[in-house]
Design a protein around this nucleic acid. Sequence first.
RNA 1: GGGCAGUUACCAAAGUGGCCAACUGGGGCUGACUGUAACUCAGCUGUCUUUCGACUUCGGAGGUUCGAAUCCUUCACUGCCCA
Length: 376
Amino acid sequence: MTFELQHNDPQSKARAGLITTDHGQIETPIFMPVGTVASVKAVHFHELREDIKAQIILGNTYHLYLRPGVEILEQAGGLHKFNGWDRPILTDSGGFQVFSLTANRKLNEEGATFRSHIDGSKHLFTPERAVEIQRSIGADIIMAFDECTPGDADYNYAKKSMGLTHRWLARGVKHFDATEPKYGYSQTFFPIVQGCVYPDLRRQSAEFVASQNRDGNAIGGLAVGEPTEKMYEMIEIVNEILPENKPRYLMGVGTPQNILEGIERGVDMFDCVMPTRNGRNGMLFTSQGIMNMRNEKWKNDFSPLDEFGTSYVDRVYTKAYLRHLFISKELLAMQIASIHNLAFYLWLVGEARKHIIAGDFSQWKRGMIEQLGRRL
RNA sequence: GGGCAGUUACCAAAGUGGCCAACUGGGGCUGACUGUAACUCAGCUGUCUUUCGACUUCGGAGGUUCGAAUCCUUCACUGCCCA
């Protein structure tokens, strides 16, 4: 994987770049739709490619390991062959599940023991195992196995947690460098900064991560319960330290506003379940603000879903129709909302890129932020 | 014509003398959701009130009782059975 830094915004830390992988290129800043279990929920890859214009999607090591399992993925020839997505894939390591499945896991120095949420069986994830599984999945970008520290952790917990993440990182790097890709194309490994909301920990973590000298770096442990302002502050601190000539990936973030704020602070890659999950739950993100499609006010609004939208669903379907589909619990509702939201997210980062290149990002961003927060 | 059962909030349906503005579903309304255990979760859903609380309700009318959705009388309507 290579990264070419193409433009720096004169007014901010925002930048435009180009990532090249064996499965194609990614123009940054980019949003990566989440496809946890080898599918971006409710969306066909055809739509993802042609309408949403996704350039890279996510998969999840923990979920894919449990189902369909490493053996099936290897038999298939890797995740790309298995699910038919021939563009880049990034896999999360399972570190987020250490956070989200707290009740079902135990941590120790060696790794994390999970109790499967599917059948209760026990499984040990170590930094080495996480690399191996991701080798089998065959993702273009694989993530270090970390502990995603909760946003409300106290200093002592955060410090210990960060130490564990760093020791796991060193092991992961070592194992990655000692192993080969399984399917003939190259893979790269991103380390993850932790440190919760504590500036000195974040600095220490960013320095340790940068010292690993990987192709790209990630910022984790944000948007997990801490105040938004803290998140922005941590991004600034960390990006001062992470190298400029490598992509920076802010994991799990976020709202459209979060993404623009992240871009302004020098982040290149984002992923989040919001456009898909919130979409399935009836919420639409648009350039004019957010809409709860279940609201009664859309009942007889026969205007297009989003007159400024770029997706075909924005023109073909009306607000009243989508509301009807949600109220009736029709599956099509979730498909339309997911397609719309993802197309909007990809439009948003695409516009950000254009404005960075044009040199008026900050001005454009200010106007967008104001619009995005409105409740329609 | 006779017998039996029933009538509770938007719908369905509990409650059968005080703890009942009334269980529970559904429907409706509103909100939440940030590296996906999520087509999920939470709140509200008689009226007025921010809360406390006040007021009006359980087919209609009348009655018994300190007190009735619950007991009695009667009327209306619905369902089933026998003629």
